[in-house]
Design a protein around this nucleic acid. Structure first.
Lengths: 179, 179
DNA sequence: CCTGAAGACTTCAATACTAAAGTTCGATGC
DNA sequence: GCATCGAACTTTAGTATTGAAGTCTTCAGG
């Protein structure tokens, strides 16, 4: 008995409205759906890459190295910035990935303060396999949307993205107007 | 100064296409925008609730307690399930929140195996303040979209959500709070 | 009753992250 | 050419989370 289960999106929004009068249901619907969708997608990605013996965290690193283009090298600091981690966390993550053979870590001979993290062949292969699984999943995910809908969706998301990105500098309050 | 900076979305997709031939740019655009948007939003939420002296993690707990409706009570196990945490993590989180006065933790007198976590007035106030900040932020975020667009966006996101939920017939998915 | 089993949480050991202090190398000023 | 500053990374200490083992309560059977 008493098996309370997670409320559906609509139930959730209705509950919020009971507790918080001036809530715009339309806005809340978009935001809540975004959040839930992302959580579920991350779970799905995590399960998939786990089959390759890597974690989502490691896959993120592989992605950024590949994105940097051949010869697939980046410094720990740059990686940390892109992944939103502290440099300390990056150090440890690279440690693990290096012992797992996904990347190498070497001092830059031209500037011995710097470190170069480079993708190994094994790392690149893992990335490719992960990418194949991910794209299959993503195709599946979007299969109900027509090409026009996909375009419209992508375009709207990018507009939202622009809003948040331009808002970052100000640590405090509301988003500033863009031009 | 080799100041490599994070690639724009379009640059990122172009880079992926160079490395992975059969990539549907339209699909990738939607998926990448979703991921980035969510990350940025979580950072923004985190900064906001930090002003109230709480973390995103704690705010999540407050949200689920409020969602359960008066008298705002849930068991640790149920909370853990909804938040995608292990029961162990939930125990510790509740510890901290209880010492901070956001919730109380008591044994259920009718069934002394069970524990009841209940929102305090202070917890409810924090939730309300966080909610006010969050909804203001969300309004700003969506300000470029017309009501029709918001409706269409929400509707498409929900279709995607149904797909993920259907595709993942609850194989016990655990997920971290943020990122 | 008494025992065994299952459920709900907690404890313990190990992992991953953050913040802050520490290290090392390179550049700048005198 | 020496000292100092700053940049880039690592180390350390402390916190959050996980998985596994442990505790306590309830319930079902004999």
């Amino acid at each position: 008995m008493s098996d309370t289960q997670e409320p559906s999106l609509d139930e959730q929004i209705a509950a919020y409205q009971r507790e918080f009068r001036d809530l715009d249901p339309q806005v809340e619907k978009v935001v809540s759906a975004l959040g839930r969708l992302n959580r579920r997608m991350n779970v799905a990605y995590g399960r998939q890459v786990a089959e390759l013996g890597i974690s989502n965290a490691e896959w993120e690193v592989l992605k950024h190295l590949v994105l940097s283009g051949a010869p697939y090298r980046l410094g720990p600091g740059e990686l940390a910035k892109r992944l939103g981690l502290t440099p300390a966390a990056m150090t440890h993550r690279i440690d693990r990935m290096a012992t797992d053979g996904l990347v190498t870590r070497d001092r830059d001979e031209n500037n011995r303060v710097r470190v170069i993290v480079e993708l190994t062949d094994e790392g690149r292969t893992k990335w490719l396999e992960a990418m194949r699984m991910a794209t299959a999943f993503e195709e599946d995910l979007l299969q109900d949307l027509s090409s026009e809908e996909r375009g419209a969706l992508g375009e709207m998301l990018i507009r939202l993205l622009r809003r948040v990105e331009h808002a970052q500098p100000d640590a405090g309050g509301r988003l500033k107007d863009l031009d």
